[in-house]
Design a protein around this nucleic acid. Structure first.
Lengths: 337, 337
DNA sequence: AGTCGCAGTCGAAGCGCTTCGACAACCTAT
DNA sequence: ATAGGTTGTCGAAGCGCTTCGACTGCGACT
């Protein structure tokens, strides 16, 4: 284990000089710098993270708290996590992975121990139990998702309200009057996850403004659940010609079921999905969709956080504007019979 | 920020005593222990991670290196990552998330800086470029996946060879003679990912032993790719009645296409999948499958690693025995026409 | 009664780094 | 020529913890 002192000795300078070469916090003559860098390379020196953290009270670690539930919107979470990790690296930070399991205790532990300099929370509920703690510490943090009360918090999220509105608008423009919403699993609404409720809000509001009839049904993923849900919808509103789907794992089952019932997409019914682009493209019908910009969300979150850590940039809510991409699953409403 | 010294003063003991109360490395009288614990609670003390790491040269952090590619077997990776994180916590470790992006450099950085005490590598290729480094440091590590040469390494993986064999056996028992394998994307084979090649090996070997004809085709996920692949297979081997699928995102497209072509599952053709149970259960036909035990793999990996860190347990290859669950997608081969 | 061992506690020496103040050497302006 | 400012370097003081050796009583041996 090579230490700073050894590098210093090897280069014939003092330890502090080596430190300044590394941090760039004081000017160093070119010759000295080069000599030191040379020694660092020759000796294969790596600064010790613990010592650094102790002396500077900065760990250069960002904690990322991901939801424990592995059953829901997994690819999105994964993509965000990876985007966070890679973006963090470009700013010189590493990422500590926390699962929701510990709940608020994890927040306490991490802030208390100085393990991480800051944290990013995912899967934020409207009235999340971690928020009071977060507000009470001076630990910089960013939420991915939008709680009910954003006062004193920095949040990054897709504008799900606008997303809902956009879906309705698209279907309305095509002449659809009866629209069904296939939502997330009931559990997601029960724990008041912001994005699901906001989407629904946006859908309802815009539908009302445009005079559409809207039927919302939560739906577990999978074929059987989707079959039951679809049957109920068509029973209640036989004239439904437009679908908005906000549950990745219901998309393919829905398409299969529609096909099976002889309803052609997009000739007879139109389907708009809210999902990552990859899902939309890989489906059996290329889906008109509003993308969930997972990477962008992860990147933004880290960038806000780094800004905070560097002193500039305060609390702020970043809502990413939704974009609807028209593909092959939506078309004009069939002429009413 | 409360320090050890403050706790010590508050409790009327020396700093070292507090330290020993915390670590349990020396015996402490019950009364002293209680007094110290009381002070810790009252002051809300949290040991400083950096100081601890510096003094003890142990960070209590495990690094987890996940593949950067988000396009492939994502849910499995996510599930493993979460299992690693939660299992690590139960042993008092936190998890640092590294993406494959940095490659071998990440290994160097982490071992060099003492940031982590040990590491877990996922998505190991047969001839992985990180292995030489791993062998040359004394940093404990565990691989999830199996490289070509396991000498001096600890590995945890599903026994993919046996998995392949098991799939073939099941189909053979049902009387199928012509079996097609829908494999992972070509890129997966090109970079010599162990699990894909081993599965193929197992499939081929057992098929040969049992006298089956086997046709292997790599396949990108998604509907279009699957359509093209299926067409080629049926063109080349019209008598194919058994399918083994090892690409989650090809499963549903395959089922849809078969249905569309009037081939009933399981009456006309049987399908065996290699995928997490959740996928098998949620598919439009409940799939006979060999489960990928993601959680178990993550848990095992951490437990091996902790054993190593505590000094017992050396290098070892843990191959998890595959289990095939019969569901609704396989049945007797149709009588030959 | 004297000795040994052990449980329980303390003091002090670091762990490897950052950072502050000091200082020497040099370069301008006056 | 001198005061003042820069620039580059160094020494030393920690950061908060762990851990080693040493010390003090005490009960259990001979």
């Amino acid at each position: 284990m090579v230490t700073l002192a050894e590098v210093a000795q090897h280069a014939g300078v003092s330890a502090s000089t080596v430190s300044y070469v590394l941090s760039g916090k004081r000017s160093i003559s070119t010759t000295t710098r080069q000599r030191v860098e040379q020694s660092i390379r020759e000796l294969g020196y790596h600064p010790n993270a613990g010592a650094r953290a102790l002396a500077s009270s900065r760990s250069n670690i960002i904690a990322l708290m991901i939801p424990l539930r592995t059953d829901i919107y997994v690819p999105v979470m994964m993509e965000i996590a990876i985007a966070v990790a890679t973006t963090a690296r470009t700013h010189g930070y590493d990422v500590l992975l926390l699962t929701g399991e510990e709940g608020p205790d994890a927040v306490r532990r991490v802030t208390g121990s100085g393990l991480a300099d800051a944290m990013i929370l995912m899967d934020v509920e409207l009235d999340d139990e971690r928020l009071p703690l977060l507000r009470s510490t001076d630990q910089p943090s960013v939420l991915i998702g939008l709680p009910a009360d954003t006062a004193g918090l920095t949040c990054v999220d897709l504008d799900f309200g606008a997303t809902g509105a956009l879906c309705v608008e698209h279907l309305a423009t095509l002449g659809h009057r009866d629209v069904a919403v296939i939502g997330e699993a009931p559990a997601v609404y029960e724990r008041h996850t912001g994005f699901a409720e906001r989407t629904l809000d946006g859908l309802r509001r815009r539908a009302k403004e445009l005079g559409l009839r809207l039927l919302h049904r939560p739906c577990e993923g999978g074929y059987d659940a989707m079959a039951a849900t679809l049957a109920r919808i068509l029973d209640e509103r036989p004239g439904t010609t437009g679908f908005v789907v906000q549950n990745e794992s219901a998309v393919e089952p829905l398409l299969a079921l529609l096909r099976q019932q002889g309803r052609a997409v997009p000739e007879d019914v139109s389907v708009v999905a809210i999902c990552p682009d990859q899902v939309a493209v890989q489906a059996s019908v290329r889906l008109t969709s509003v993308a969930i910009p997972a990477q962008e969300m992860g990147r933004h979150a880290v960038e806000r956080l780094v800004a905070k850590l560097e002193g500039h940039g305060g609390d702020e809510v970043v809502l990413i504007a939704p974009e609807l991409t028209v593909r092959a699953s939506t078309g004009p409403a069939p002429v009413a019979s």
